[in-house]
Write a protein that binds this DNA or RNA. Structure first.
Length: 935
RNA sequence: GCCCGGAUGGUGGAAUUGGUAGACACGUCAGACUUAAAAUCUGAUGACCGUAAGGUCGUGCGGGUUCAAUUCCCGCUCCGGGUACCA
């Protein structure tokens, strides 16, 4: 009987669905396993072959773990708020919810036909009010929390208020910005003088107005409002990301972009900086992802050093951050970021014009562009500072290589020991103080950590590791500076000027934000999805009566960013229909951390950092009992497309086959890959493809076919090389697609999508189906058992190390070897093989399982154990090498010892022939592996 | 610039801890079956020399360590990804 995958797959999908085979409940009897996939955004284009790659891998593991007796949670849902649906809404007026619904339906159908073991009863959608109700709830929790630096965890805001009312802000250390008080509206605090420096008493606090207290608390909340500079595009009425801005213009439309300060919601992720680093030690992720996160958080230990201004700027103090306080004596200039607030204080009258011009040109560049700039540029301000140790005057420059947002926005330049500073000094002919023994730093920069210092006062003779603590002591002793830890990580902007996102559960009364915690604030109806004419977000179009909930003077009209809903979705899957809690504690205690997360590495510094932050926060708030969301993660590689080309003879409608293209002057054109099979063009189909090709003629190859050229490049519609899984499922079936995507190569490597090899995998499934159909209820032979048990051993080991591709090979080898046997195949021997197959080709596995009388469904069968007795063979084939080169092979009993082997080998005629009279110097024997004779 | 990956036959890849390089599959070639085609099955297939036996070369390039290197070390080239000139 032919392998009828269409009937088989339809049938078993129906069986699983009617039996709810993949629905899962907590169970005390079984250990749990949580397999999670990246949260898909349902775009209009549908699923393409890159998507299922990760889903198949996690499905294989989920099914494998189920065979091993685990209670497996493997859910799927949709990150359904997002820009494309909103843009479609702007263009057509159709509510984004409708577009989203349509796309989700398509995605779900596509995923269902691939036969994933998803528990669809747990599907969640971030745009569903029953879901974002809880996103709002978590936001509310963050709004009403602060971070206690001493206890190193988040705490309820009420504790902070309580402490303020008893002790003011003495003896309490909440995470906040440096000099947080500087941004306060001082008119709210009439009794604080000009010298207010951030400390207040209980009496102060208790006498403050509500507005005043709110203004102070805002600096300590984990979700807070702050002024933040954004790329504002007045034309589009929206804020743009850095990479949406090119040369000061919006990428889309080319409109001018300006910096604008906006009052935005922020997340105090910086409070978690250290824990985001230390937590990495507890997870099983690749080192490169961990390293990227560490670099993103960017913890560096160093010192802040105070430089006083000289002459006209003598009332100024410039605070710099340095990781190399040991090189303090090598400072010969200072560089401020062009945006640094003290720039005017150091600028002399004659330099003013040049300085202003430089500031303007720097401000036009995005941060990215400034960082990528290779040429050295900068301007001397004219003013100088005093070196804190030597008292020398140090000139002050501005340059775009110093960023305002990092450290203090000012550096002390040490040209002798820093590459950039050295180049800068060379460029501007600034003196390079000689501070390293044995190095001529006027010729080249010294980057040797072992170099000993000179001309450095009490630090002379010390190398970096010893000099740093000595320098720190020196600075702290005289109050010239202090130890400091600096982070690159910045607080995350949490407001978006969009419609299709979670509304904030916030209303304003006298401009004080108030939390709405008793009801869900769902999206209001609006007449259009565009910003208002005065640049307010789309939600500002809603009148009071358009809001399902309206309180106070006005509602918050920003919405939350995409990462809000996706930062905690893995928790909602545990308890998706709970209307009283975001996730019941007993459920999150049962399912716990995600045991395997499969997804791309592109989320490293976004989603993966934010979910870790929220998880830690929820753990601090005692909502869940773990503070790292994803225990183990695998990052799948990118799938590239294989494009096909036809060669049009220039100026004609004639197309020449690949082999003969060089005989003509041709244009290479992309051709739709659906018209090509194994690089052979469907000539008729090609003529019908485009009206312009209807009269095409062809110069064919000698075999009468048209061969196309090919190239591997990015999968894209415009290159006609996009493969959706639908066509492949239609043509070969879901099981073939599943096996093939795994067979392609290592999951983590990016690789071309090339369907040429798919027939081999399809053949394998056909062979296995025939093999099992032809088996009978006889006693298994030893040879059969050996083949099957070797497969069990190999497949199990490969799955445990996530080597998905070699599992398919191992099964192919087993099937080929079983086919080669000339004894009848037995049901008993084949059953374990079907279980091994079932994670990869679950439909076919069910079919053949039922055929040879397996009990129940194969998906519930017990994973077989390899019997070691069948794995070892009595004989070992030894490759015998001479000086490392294999010359002949010898079969010897496996049990033979090294001296016995040596005796036999040396007696062998071939050995004598190889040695050709030379003396044997050494014989290396690795029992069970190899023999090497040196001579 | 910096950081992280990667490079193995015509193609995708295998070689798990330094131990037979090229498993498995595609493609190609030859053969069987067939009136023919498809499907299926069998065999060959890294390059070079050789009728063969056999030999030489061969895992991006150049060195090194080792009895033995795709694997470890040093230096480089190219490709991909990330990025923040991070003080």
């Amino acid at each position: 009987m032919e392998y009828d995958f269409r009937r088989i797959e339809k049938h078993w999908q129906k069986v699983w669905s009617t039996q709810n085979s993949y629905n899962v409940e907590e169970s005390a009897e079984k250990p749990k396993f949580y397999a999670l996939d990246m949260f898909p955004y349902p775009s209009g284009a549908g699923l393409h072959v890159g998507h299922p790659l990760g889903y198949i891998a996690s499905d294989v593991i989920a099914r494998y773990k189920r065979h091993c007796g685990f209670n497996v949670l493997h859910p799927m849902g949709f990150d359904s708020f997002g820009l494309p649906a909103e843009q479609y809404a702007i263009a057509t007026g159709q509510h984004p919810a409708i577009t989203t619904e349509t796309n989700i339906t398509r995605y779900r159908e596509q995923m269902k036909q691939i036969g994933f073991a998803f528990d669809w009863s747990r599907e969640v959608r971030t745009s569903d009010p029953s879901y974002y109700k809880w996103t709002q709830w978590i936001f509310g929790k963050l709004f009403e929390s602060w971070y206690d630096v001493e206890a190193d965890r988040a705490k309820p805001l009420s504790e902070l208020e309580n402490s303020f009312s008893k002790n003011g802000n003495f003896s309490i250390n909440p995470a906040c910005e440096d000099e947080w008080w500087k941004g306060l509206e001082m008119s709210l605090f009439p009794h604080f003088g000009e010298n207010f420096s951030g400390t207040f008493t209980a009496t102060d606090w208790n006498s403050m107005s509500k507005q005043a207290r709110n203004a102070i608390l805002m600096h300590f909340r984990l979700a807070y409002l702050a002024n933040s500079e954004v790329n504002w595009c007045p034309e589009l009425g929206t804020v743009l990301a850095n990479d949406e801005v090119k040369d000061g213009l919006s990428e889309r439309g080319g409109h001018p972009v300006e910096k604008k300060t906006m009052r935005q919601w922020m997340m105090r992720i910086t409070a978690y900086a250290d824990r985001l680093i230390s937590g990495l030690d507890e997870v099983n992720w690749t080192d490169s992802i961990k390293e990227a996160q560490r670099n993103w958080v960017g913890r560096s230990e160093g010192a802040s050093v105070k430089f006083s201004g000289s002459s006209s700027a003598s009332n100024c103090v410039v605070d710099v951050f340095t990781t190399r306080p040991d090189t303090l004596y090598g400072v010969s200039f200072m560089v401020l970021a062009p945006e640094h607030k003290l720039v005017p204080n150091f600028t002399s009258n004659e330099n003013e014009a040049a300085v202003n011009e430089y500031i303007l040109s720097a401000s036009r560049k995005s941060e990215r562009e400034r960082q990528g700039e290779k040429t050295i540029s900068g301007v001397a301000l004219g003013g100088s500072v005093i070196h804190p140790l030597t008292g020398r005057e140090i000139p002050v420059y501005i340059s775009e290589y110093v960023l305002a947002g990092y450290g203090t926005g000012a550096i002390m330049a040490v040209p002798a020991g820093d590459e950039r500073d050295w180049k800068f000094a060379q460029h501007f002919s600034i003196e390079i103080p000689d501070i390293f023994e044995g190095y001529d730093t006027n010729k080249a920069v010294c980057l040797d950590d072992k170099a000993k210092l000179k001309n450095s006062g009490s630090l002379d003779g010390l190398e970096k590791s010893a000099a740093i603590p000595a320098a720190l002591n020196l600075l702290e002793k005289d109050g010239l500076g202090e130890r400091r830890i600096n982070y690159r990580l910045r607080d995350a902007v949490f407001s978006r000027q969009r419609y299709w996102g979670e509304p904030f559960p916030i209303y304003y009364e006298n401009d004080i934000p108030n939390l709405i915690s008793d009801v869900t604030v769902s999206l209001p109806t609006v007449d259009a999805y565009l910003p208002t004419t005065d640049g307010e977000p789309p939600l500002a179009r809603a009148n009071r009566e358009d809001w399902p909930v309206f309180r106070g003077d006005r509602m918050e009209t920003n919405t939350m960013p995409g990462w809000a809903g996706s930062s905690w979705y893995f928790l909602r899957y545990m308890d998706p229909h709970n209307n009283n809690e975001f996730c019941a504690r007993e459920k999150s205690d049962y399912w716990g951390q995600v045991d395997l997360y499969v997804g791309g590495a592109e989320h490293t510094t976004g989603h993966l950092l934010y979910s870790r932050f929220w998880t830690k926060f929820l753990c601090d708030s005692d909502q869940i009992s773990f503070d790292e969301p994803f225990k183990t993660m695998i990052n799948q590689g990118m799938i590239l497309g294989r494009s096909n080309f036809v060669y049009r003879i220039q100026g004609t409608e004639k197309f020449v086959t690949f082999e003969k293209r060089k005989d003509f002057k041709t244009q290479r054109l992309h051709v739709d890959i659906t018209l090509v099979e194994n690089d052979k063009l469907d000539v008729e189909g090609f003529c019908k493809w485009r009206t312009e090709y209807s009269n095409a003629e062809f110069v064919l190859g000698d075999d009468g076919t048209y061969t196309c050229g090919y190239e591997v490049e990015k999968m894209s519609k415009s290159k006609y090389n996009v493969q959706t899984p639908d066509e492949l499922v239609e043509k070969y079936g879901a099981d073939t697609l599943r096996c093939y995507e795994m067979f392609l190569g290592p999951l983590t490597q990016s690789k071309p999508w090339d369907t040429q090899g798919i027939s081999g995998v399809h053949n394998f499934l056909r062979k296995i189906s025939r093999l099992i159909e032809s088996s009978s209820d006889v006693e298994p032979t030893k040879a059969e058992l050996r083949i099957v048990h070797q497969a069990i051993d190999k497949v199990t080991a490969d799955l445990n190390r996530h080597a998905f591709n070699t599992v398919v090979s191992a099964l192919m080898i087993a099937v080929n070897e079983l086919n080669d046997l000339d004894t009848p195949r037995s049901h008993q021997a084949l059953r374990p093989l079907i279980t091994l197959l079932s994670p990869y080709a679950p439909h076919l596995a069910e079919e053949v399982w039922a055929l040879i009388g397996g009990e129940g469904l194969v998906i519930d069968s017990v994973w077989p154990k390899a019997n070691p007795a069948y794995l070892v063979s009595d004989d070992t084939i030894y490759p015998v090498s001479f000086n490392g080169k294999v010359r002949f092979k010898l079969t010897l009993p496996t049990s033979m010892t090294a001296p016995e082997i040596e005796e036999i080998i040396l007696a062998d005629d071939r050995t004598k022939k190889q040695m050709n009279g030379r003396e044997i110097r050494k014989v290396i024997i690795v029992p069970g592996r190899i023999v090497n004779i040196v001579g």
